[in-house]
C-alpha cells in the first residue's frame, strides 16, 4: 500500500518522466531475470546511484517477477538456442574462460535468454513508460482526480497515507 502511495505521489509530483521510466524499465529487467547474478548487482547499483525513481522500479520488479514465472521457459529456450549457436561458439568459449564471464553466468540458458529479451524490451518499455507518464500528467491527471472512485479513494486510508507522505 505504501509503495503504491509513493508511486502515486511520484506520478503526481514534478519528478522527471525519465526517472519514472528508467525505474519501470530497470524494474522490468530485475523482475524478468534470475535474481542471483552480476546483472542484479549492477541493476541495484544503477537504481541507487543514478536518480532513478525507486518506487516505479520496485513496482515494476514485483509485476515483472510474476510475469517471469511463465516466461522463464521461453527465456530458457531462447538462451539455449543462442548459446548453442555455432556462429557464436568462439565468443562463448572465450567468455567462459574469463572471470567476468563466469560471474555473469551467461552460460545459464534462462539468464542469457531473459537478459537478451530485456535488452530488446528495455528501450521499448523505457520510451513507452515515459510517454505514458507524460500522457498521464497532460491528459489524465486532472481528469482522473475528478473520478468518483478517486474521490472515494481520497477519503480512504490509502489517500491519508499518501497525504501524510506528501506533507
Amino acid at each position: 500500500m505504501g509503495l503504491l502511495a509513493k508511486l502515486f505521489k511520484a506520478l503526481n509530483s514534478d519528478a522527471s518522466p525519465w526517472q519514472l521510466a528508467f525505474g519501470f524499465a530497470l524494474g522490468m529487467v530485475m523482475g524478468l531475470t534470475p535474481f542471483v547474478g552480476l546483472h542484479s548487482l549492477l541493476l541495484i547499483f544503477s537504481v541507487l546511484f543514478f536518480r532513478v525513481n525507486i518506487s516505479s522500479f520496485l513496482i515494476a520488479w514485483t509485476v515483472f517477477s510474476v510475469i517471469a514465472i511463465p516466461a522463464s521457459y521461453g527465456f530458457s529456450a531462447l538462451g539455449e538456442s543462442i548459446l548453442l549457436s555455432s556462429t557464436l561458439e568462439s565468443l562463448w568459449n572465450g567468455l567462459y574462460g574469463t572471470f567476468i564471464g563466469q560471474l555473469t553466468q551467461f552460460y545459464h540458458t534462462t539468464t542469457l535468454g531473459s537478459l537478451i529479451a530485456c535488452v530488446i524490451l528495455f528501450p521499448i518499455i523505457l520510451l513507452l513508460s515515459k510517454k505514458l507518464v507524460e500522457q498521464y500528467r497532460e491528459r489524465f491527471m486532472k481528469w482522473v482526480n475528478q473520478w468518483r472512485i478517486v474521490q472515494i479513494l481520497k477519503g480512504s486510508k490509502f489517500f491519508q497515507i499518501y497525504q501524510a507522505i506528501k506533507d
Binding site: P34, S72, F75, S76, G79, E80, L83, L84, E89, W92, N93, Y96, G97, Y107, H108, T109, T110, T111, G113
Partner: peptide
C-alpha cells in the same frame, strides 16, 4: 525445470 547450464570446450 530451472534452465540449463551449458558447458563449453575449455572446461
Amino acid at each position: 525445470y530451472q534452465g540449463k547450464w551449458i558447458n563449453f570446450d575449455n572446461d
